[in-house]
């Protein structure tokens, strides 16, 4: 078995390898940053005037940005699945599995590199947000907490996607499949509009959707909650930080061991 130090050292080697790809294929970084900028600008100026349900006087830009942050990092995590499927297709996973390296380092290196991409995305979005009128109205510590919570949640989704990549094995299919699941998941939530505007059934789903709670937690931590909105009935939305962390821990507890197991049993072709 590998020692912890060996696992860390191997994971660093793999993370570095994955980040070199980001450097060599600038498209990756362009899309990782352009699409969130596009979302910020589109929602702020196209839908911003039409979105109903906010108490008067609340800035839609402030309400919107935490939602965009969450949606973008969740989508950013789906990269993990496609990248692992690509490594599998190209025989690289076989090579890694034949090396005397740590058994979990390939997946750790992948998810950590994708976390790095998400950090870049968030920085770009936050700067864009500041330009269009988003502000942090809380303490620095709370704001850092907000960013960390978003990243922890995204990191957990990365491990879930790692499992999907190992099972589905075709990058294009991983992309399409994750779009079909993730797109509704990030829209049936309070990402872009207050839940009060939803039909009842959708609202119940949205209240317990962890995307809603990660968004709400971020709003609270950045001081972006509109003052006049009614208190939510659902426990999840009353304790969004705790509820989100429980989800992240649960996803990691299930999918880290499952993905490592799948990695050890998988084979190219």
């Amino acid at each position: 078995m590998s020692t912890l130090a060996e696992t860390v050292s191997d994971s660093v080697v793999i993370t570095r390898r994955n980040l070199i790809k980001v450097k060599r294929v600038p498209d990756l970084i362009v899309f990782a940053t352009l699409s969130p900028i596009m979302f910020v600008v589109l929602f702020r100026y196209v839908f911003g005037g039409a979105i109903q349900g906010l108490p008067p006087g609340v800035s839609y830009a402030e309400f919107l940005l935490p939602g965009i942050f969450a949606q973008t990092v969740v989508f950013g995590s789906t990269v993990t699945g496609a990248s692992i499927a690509e490594d599998l297709q190209k025989g690289l996973i076989d090579r890694f599995r034949s090396l005397p390296m740590s058994r979990s380092a390939v997946l750790i290196g992948r998810t950590v590199a994708d976390l790095g991409l998400n950090v870049i995305s968030i920085v770009v979005m936050a700067l864009t947000g500041l330009v269009v009128g988003w502000r942090i109205n809380s303490s620095i510590a709370e704001a850092i907490g907000g960013f960390l919570l978003l990243l922890v949640f995204a990191f957990a989704i990365s491990w879930l996607m790692a499992m999907v990549g190992l099972l589905v094995r075709t990058p294009e299919v991983v992309n399409n499949a994750s779009f079909i699941v993730i797109f509704p998941l990030t829209f049936i939530a309070d990402t872009f509009v207050p839940l009060e505007t939803f039909p009842t059934v959708l609202r119940h789903f949205a209240e317990w959707n962890p995307v809603s709670t990660v968004v709400r937690a971020a709003r609270e931590l950045f001081g972006n909650m509109p003052a006049g909105l009614p208190e939510p009935d659902a426990w999840s939305l009353q304790n969004p930080v705790l509820y989100t962390l429980l989800w992240a821990v649960a996803i990691l507890a299930v999918f880290v061991p499952l993905s490592v197991r799948a990695y050890l049993r998988t084979s190219s072709r």
Binding site: E6, V13, K21, G91, L92, D94, M101, A105
Partner: peptide
């Protein structure tokens, strides 16, 4: 052991040197 599979399992985004150094590091 060393293994060379049917499909050249090299990382196409890394240079030749980077590929070999990476594998060397993973062999400890």
């Amino acid at each position: 052991i060393g293994l060379t599979g049917q499909y050249a399992a090299v990382d196409e985004y890394l240079t030749g040197t980077e590929n070999l150094e990476m594998v060397g590091r993973l062999y400890r």
